[in-house]
Nucleic acid binder design. Structure first.
Lengths: 152, 152
DNA sequence: CCGTCATATGCGCCAAGGCGAATATATTTG
DNA sequence: CAAATATATTCGCCTTGGCGCATATGACGG
């Protein structure tokens, strides 16, 4: 994988029927940790080390859940040197997109989710306070339309 | 349970945080059979025997999935004599409701789902053609606002 | 009350999913 | 190339979920 290129594991979906897509989407969303991850990515591209710092979960746990999200096509990943950046991969279909947006709105309304978000903001602004974030790339706002899904 | 009364198993949700509600909602939606069931209930209250007839799955399978849906609060049940009627239980929260509506819209756009629906329509109009539907109550359009969730 | 019909539930089996711990991989730096 | 860093994957364990099958429950009719 070349640097700066987004990837998405759509190859894992041999049956492309809408019903299978929905099943997989909901399976991807049906976990508290993954919802928290998505919430943090709602409008930013975020580096893995921040997830580990903010969610206070073991790094392999974070990585595994990001893997699930990748495989269900919900997020895309980009490598930058040692760092991996994750961002939400907006579905192409209108109805699927609508559904994901509703989910993100709902997440944004939740107390714990707001807490996670503000912790992320603080971590970015005072990066030097976090021993595990030294030199970590700051989350970048997602440019609309960039990084849309590309199958590999 | 008295006849004609709707029930919903919200008791199964001790932690009422939004995140738990979302997790449970998505778990409920993350199965092909349950999506097909919800699609058939989109704007009608439907009796179990129709589900068995239309989905062509064993009755215990149907019943178990209806049980999951009941326990996640996605549907409500009403008894009428020997028959059980199921209908979608619209969430109270605006964002959750929005999400469910989008899901139903998405289902309605799917080919297989449309096939299920038209099979249901046909079964209702020619009930006598189906040996397992003799005398079964015909699905009734859902009256808006009736049968909203009530915890027990 | 007994049989029947509609539906629900229990049981055993297998596959999938989540977790902690250890280890592997990829990239940069010296 | 070796060491360090960031991230991913593997393994073993346990829990959950779905299924087929058998059986239980609940309501009605005779």
């Amino acid at each position: 994988m070349r640097q700066g290129e987004y990837i998405c594991y759509n190859w894992a979906v041999p049956d492309k029927s809408a019903i299978t897509e929905m099943e997989r989407l909901f399976q991807g969303l049906a976990d508290r940790t993954r919802l928290r991850l998505l919430n943090l990515m709602a409008d930013q591209e975020v580096c893995v080390c921040y997830f580990v710092e903010i969610l206070e979960l073991p790094q392999p746990t974070i990585s595994r859940h990001l893997g699930y999200l990748r495989r269900t096509g919900l997020v895309a990943a980009r490598r930058e040197g040692r760092w991996m950046h994750y961002r939400i991969s907006v579905p192409r279909g209108r109805l699927a997109r609508q559904l994901l947006m509703d989910t993100l709105r709902w997440l944004a309304a939740d107390k714990q989710m707001q807490r996670d978000r503000s912790r992320l903001t603080r971590a970015c602004c005072a990066q030097d306070k976090f021993v595990n974030l030294q030199g970590a790339p700051v989350p970048q706002p997602v440019r609309e339309g960039v990084g849309e899904r590309r199958s590999i």
